[in-house]
Design a protein around this nucleic acid. Structure first.
Lengths: 373, 373
DNA sequence: AGGGGTTGGTCAAAGGTCCT
DNA sequence: AAGGACCTTTGACCAACCCC
């Protein structure tokens, strides 16, 4: 940084640029202008005689460039473009077109992603099975009805039905899971299930672009903004009033939304990413009580899933963007754990208090044992 | 300056370099690339077949390097930091000035990583401060003594001393943190501290290549294989015998090792990566009770840290390897949470039972409030 | 010694990136 | 969208070094 002023704009100059000792700003301006071959028009009056001084902000571009040439800056020294060290603009633009043109149809990107392709396909089967099992608003047997808000009893009933459905789905997707010993399978399945419930809720919100209600797999929803509807018990046999329950569990809904729904909305996770996260949540290599053998399998599958995610991204993004996206997605997992744990605490609290008693079957069969999560 | 053209780029060649008669530019390029072990990706279409001509601009680095190798330039001739010769005078002077020169050659990879470089540097300061504060085996004031196993009382004392030390360190590393409102800062700091303790323990184990003992910042250690030494109380006033305590907390040590030490050993995380994880753990954007503003800051810093990690990897690895490594590192965070939570549960249990009572100061000032983690 | 040749180191000035 | 601060890369130049 020398003391001589930039001959173009009078700002402190900063070494030689394109043949003349000018400031870095004028250097960048000159480079961009020449590189993009931009032309300007002077709007001044009288024309082509604007003052070019760095005091303000708005120069007349035309006169600034003219002055650059006048003081001797050489167009020839501007290079024709180099390789960037991350992505290349050209590439990024082309690929942006591709991904924008087909938001839902990602068939083209799925090739060579054996694990994730399998999950995506069989998730469709799960969706169909749900229509039959839940008789919800999208059920095929009964005539269609609009989605309705549900209370906690109905919710638990839905999730209980789901548990085994999801188990079958997992066994179908992952031979690694299907072939595990029954006790290991049970550990993973229990650890997984609530996470899946929470994650899928976030994904539904993401699909519907709203975080004020939480959709269930049945198609109905929990109204998070009016939780008294959720805690309302038609039989009226609970030791707590809905109002009390709302006070007690109010922050739980906050937790779900903050930790999972919002991040997923922010990242705008697609179905593919949601299912990849599902796989990572299932194959939790660091779970307590699992055998070293199971842990090794988990690590292997996780690695494969990460590789496929990366491949999926690399087909539409540059390397850097892909990696960062992968990182952001993986960063959702701790939040997912947090939300799930909160969910579990709520359920256990209800259970202990015998307030809003949870179906015993659900409690015994579908939840991780204490301290395991 | 001979007349034969450089076989890589056709510019006039300039003597033999690394085995082939090439121009000085290609020589320098080759030297830099090999020295830093950089990998490139070709963005051309068709791939790996770009023209390499010295038109003054626009090389494809990948193809340029490939051509260097193709024409016979030898990687082996590039030295790894003046290994063959004695140190140069100038270099010796610099070393005298800086005094704390990096033991490994981090220098080359750290450029342009403003956040992580700052953390790495100021971590050294933290290490020095510890020597004074803890008077441990590496303390500068008292004569050196070998590391010894410590009990829980000594451990808590060490961590209490550390809390504010670490707080200062954080404020020094992260202006974003230093400038937060006091309540937000406190939330992050409390949430962070145990995670840091656990993570750093894993890092120490990683450094010493052993997971059977857990080093403390003071330089002493907890003997995880013989936890009765840890629960031994010289005053003998506790309501539990060491044996009972071991039974009670036995699986905690397992949890630490399984969740943090083992993954870090597996990944062989270096100091740089450990500190990057530290940053990610601090700026937890999904923490309960933090303001939206703070969360936004957290997301921003996290993003920057991830980018710097990626850059760090990309300078020595290919894009895919770098991304997977990043993914694996980030995947340690959920495990870290799990181990930390377990740690917290132990402390709270001890506290409630008034067995192995924890220093009240530590309990009140250094831990996250209930349900927050 | 001493010069020719090759090494790594240095730095000004290119281009690229990011946030406003 | 464009400006400007900030970062990386490049290649000419030079000191250190080996060898004959």
């Amino acid at each position: 940084m020398t003391q001589t002023p930039c001959p173009v704009c009078q700002a402190p100059s900063n070494g030689f640029h394109f043949g003349v000792e000018v400031c870095s700003a004028c250097s960048a301006f000159f480079r961009r202008t020449v590189f993009k071959n931009r032309k300007f028009r002077c709007w001044g009056d009288p024309v082509n005689s604007c003052k070019v001084v760095s005091t303000g902000s708005a120069f007349c571009k035309s006169c600034r460039f003219a002055k650059c040439l006048a003081v001797g800056m050489q167009k020839e020294i501007v290079q024709k473009g180099r390789e960037g060290y991350g992505k290349r603009e050209k590439e990024a633009q082309e690929l942006a077109l591709v991904s924008a043109s087909s938001p839902t149809n990602f068939k083209m990107n799925r090739q060579g992603l054996p694990i994730l392709e399998t999950i995506v396909e069989s998730y469709k089967t799960l969706e169909n099975a749900r229509k039959c099992v839940h008789q919800g608003p999208h059920g095929g047997v009964f005539p269609k009805r609009p989605p309705k808000p549900v209370n906690y009893k109905e919710t638990i009933a839905v999730f209980l039905k789901e548990y085994y459905l999801v188990g079958d789905w997992l066994s179908h997707c992952f031979p690694e899971f299907a072939n595990m010993k029954i006790d290991q399978k049970d550990l993973l399945h229990r650890n997984f299930y609530l996470q899946f419930v929470v994650l899928e809720g976030g994904f539904f919100s993401c699909n519907h672009k709203r975080s004020d209600i939480r959709y269930l797999p049945s198609g109905d929803y929990i109204d998070c903004v009016n939780p008294e509807t959720y805690y309302y018990d038609p039989d009226g046999q609970q030791p707590m009033t809905p109002d009390e329950a709302v006070t007690m569990f109010a922050s739980s809904f906050q937790t779900y939304r903050r930790n999972v729904t919002h991040p997923m909305l922010r990242e705008n996770a697609d179905r593919f990413e949601f299912l990849a996260l599902t796989g990572l949540a299932l194959f939790d290599a660091d779970l307590e009580y699992i055998s070293e053998e199971t842990a090794a399998v988990c690590r292997k599958v996780r690695m494969r899933i990460q590789k496929e995610m990366l491949k999926y991204y690399m087909s539409t993004k540059g390397a850097e963007e892909a990696s960062l996206r992968l990182g952001n997605l993986i960063s959702i997992i701790p939040s997912l754990h947090r939300a799930t744990r909160r969910f579990l605490e709520d359920i256990e609290l209800s259970h202990v208090l015998k307030a809003y008693s949870v179906d015993e079957k659900f409690y015994d069969n579908c939840l991780p044992k204490f301290g395991q999560l």
